[in-house]
């Protein structure tokens, strides 16, 4: 098990490294630099700014600079004052500060580094993502179980039609509908904004509903398969109450495919979707994905993509380890 985890982590590090290379390469293949304005800057000033951020160097050298800032930890007696020297991890150890993972300055913001952006906006996206996941699991799994236990009855058809309905309304559709009905028309909830629990209700539902439909279908299919297994018949034959058979024996194994999709789903929900955050006016990380690319804000592009990839990789690893706990037949070597 330990060996398996270590091997997977090494493989994941390789994946992350390849992602940095691809992103960096694509980013620099895109024409236009971060300081090309409609009203061009005087050439001397542009040259100075570009020299400050090493943009006058070849791409490979820029990449090495970036990786150095990202990977090499530093120890400094005071907190860094310049945005270029900032770091994501700032721990006070002894008299000074341990600084690690510097994602660099943001070209388009003069007051915040990428580290600041991640520190301030990621928690918002994370919170929204967790709520959305709770919505997805909270609706999806019970609906799937209900449909499977009443296979080919009205409840089953109703539940699965509901699931198709859910899949058919992505955030881009559900967002405007929810805002106009509950925010603008009935005035039950604040239409946009973030901060109070009331603000979180609509975006969580809009973001989580499509995933809940996916989970419901998966739970149903998987439970139907497990229920036909011999050990379920055994459990029934020895006189266990039906409720115990389902909860203790069937459900546990049937959740494996569900857990598989939860991994990538969680990463996607947490890193925030641009549409949800735009429609509901939420100050999350999602909008930086898009604005940074159109602004050619290289460090923000790299930072947001890396954070997403790290979430994805960790989520997948956790999923694989969860398998072993859910199904004792799975062993890793």
């Amino acid at each position: 098990m330990i060996r398996y985890i270590v091997r997977r982590m090494l493989w994941n590090l390789l994946v992350l490294w390849v992602i940095t290379v691809i992103t960096f390469g694509l980013m620099h293949a895109v024409p236009g630099g971060p300081f090309d304005r409609e009203k061009p800057l005087p050439p001397e000033i542009k040259a100075n700014i570009e020299a400050k951020y090493h943009l006058d160097k070849p791409v490979v050298v820029q990449y090495l600079y970036y990786m150095r800032d990202l990977l090499v930890p530093r120890y400094s007696p005071t907190l860094p004052t310049s945005l270029q020297e900032d770091a994501l991890i700032r721990w006070k150890i002894g008299p000074g500060y341990f600084l690690w993972i510097n994602l660099g300055p943001s070209y388009s913001s003069r007051s915040r580094s990428v580290n600041d952006i991640i520190r301030q906006n990621l928690p918002v996206s994370f919170e929204l993502g967790v709520y959305a996941l709770l919505v997805a699991v909270g609706i999806g799994i019970p609906l799937g179980i209900l449909a499977a236990l009443n296979q080919n009855t009205f409840l089953d058809y109703f539940g699965m039609s509901l699931a198709i309905f859910g899949v058919s309304v992505p955030v881009i559709v559900l967002g405007p509908i929810l805002v106009s009905i509950f925010g603008v028309w009935l005035k039950w909830l604040p239409p946009t904004g973030w901060g109070t629990p009331q603000h979180a209700i609509m975006p969580s539902i809009a973001l989580g509903l499509a995933s809940s439909a996916l989970i419901a279908r998966l739970t149903r299919a998987s439970l139907l398969q497990v229920i036909r297994e011999d050990y379920i018949r055994t459990a029934r034959a020895k006189g266990l109450a039906e409720r115990l058979v389902i909860i203790r024996h069937a459900l546990r194994n049937s959740l494996i495919p569900v857990v598989t999709v939860l991994g990538p789903l969680f990463a996607a929900l947490v890193t925030g979707t641009f549409v949800t955050e735009t429609i509901f006016g939420i100050p999350g990380l999602g909008r930086y994905f898009v604005t940074s690319i159109t602004n050619r804000d290289h460090p923000v592009i790299m930072g947001t993509i890396l954070i997403y990839a790290i979430f994805l990789v960790i989520a997948n690893l956790v999923v694989d380890i969860t398998y072993a706990f859910l199904d004792p037949r799975i062993r890793y070597t």
């Binding site: 992602i19 992103t23 694509l26 980013m27 996607a268 690319i293 592009i301 993509i305 990839a309």
Partner: peptide
């Protein structure tokens, strides 16, 4: 697969 698909499309679009 590990590369976020939508971001890849966005990068390609800008490119």
């Amino acid at each position: 697969y590990a590369f976020p698909g939508l971001l890849f499309i966005i990068l390609l679009m800008v490119f």
